[in-house]
Write a protein that binds this DNA or RNA. Structure first.
Lengths: 146, 146
DNA sequence: CTCAGTGCAAAGGATTTGCATGCCG
DNA sequence: CGGCATGCAAATCCTTTGCACTGAG
């Protein structure tokens, strides 16, 4: 956890931002979640967290490459630690409740995908930054009646 | 185009919905777009389209498996024809302006991805319906200054 | 006649922003 | 001191909903 904070602090400094208690708390909550969480979920683990501060800090953290925002079909956006800070992974997305779960794929397949996508991107004059590969379906809690 | 309308009509009937002029017009606009479009973009190609009707019809079409809604980081959601009606494909997503572009990948890779995802899903008690594999980056218009 | 479809107007609700204050460097 | 950080309140704006009217079968 100390390493994480050091890495985050470095990223914030690089953008002339401070690593305040609020931000440290947000990062710790995200690190502990081990899956993308919504702002209400974050607030649960943090008494007295004004929404505007939360959103504003998450936005700063996003611009500094510390947090990733995931906009799905769910009412709220989900937030997670950005990729250089956590291992590359993907998500299981529940089409019923919109919840997200982390999932890791074989490295070889990732490489194949990246190569193929890079080729397609070049053909379209597109400059890629990263890919997302999500599986949509029903989570355990939303299992469709068989 | 006739085939498309027939297929859409069948899906609507199955859900006890009519294939009205408005809905026919929406489907034709989406078919011609050849990329996911926002509601304002749809309205451009259609004079006198009340928003509430558009949203309501898109919702009906979505429930009937005719339209897919894509919620990204852009202000507006994007809509496209659902997959059984158009070929399986993925998207180039511009991280700057949020625009979407269709992209087709090698079938062999798709199969590999599906197999790997199915395995991961099973391990998590997740019932998959489909995958999404998007490439994020900068579109031609938003090319970052080098 | 009946019931889905339509459209205007108003509501809903996640997220953003204005502004005054607090606080770290 | 200067400028970011904070938080309350209000605004924003995409999308949904209430309700009365229309039209297809």
């Amino acid at each position: 956890m100390g390493e994480l904070h050091a890495a985050v602090a470095r990223r914030l400094e690089r953008h002339d931002h401070r690593y305040t208690r609020r931000r440290r708390h947000l990062v710790e909550t995200l690190a502990r979640a081990a899956r993308p969480v919504t702002l209400p979920q974050i607030a649960t683990h943090s008494d007295e967290l004004p929404q505007s501060s939360a959103y504003r800090n998450l936005e700063v953290l996003e611009r500094c490459g510390v947090v990733s925002r995931i906009a799905g079909t769910a009412d709220h956006a989900h937030f997670e630690l950005a990729e250089p800070l956590v291992e590359h992974h993907h998500h299981l997305v529940c089409v019923a409740c919109g919840s997200l779960e982390d999932v890791h794929l074989d490295q070889e397949l990732e490489t194949l995908v990246d190569a193929e996508l890079a080729q397609a991107a070049a053909a379209a004059g597109f400059t890629p930054t990263h890919h997302s590969l999500d599986l949509h379906g029903f989570c355990q809690d939303c299992e469709p009646e068989q």
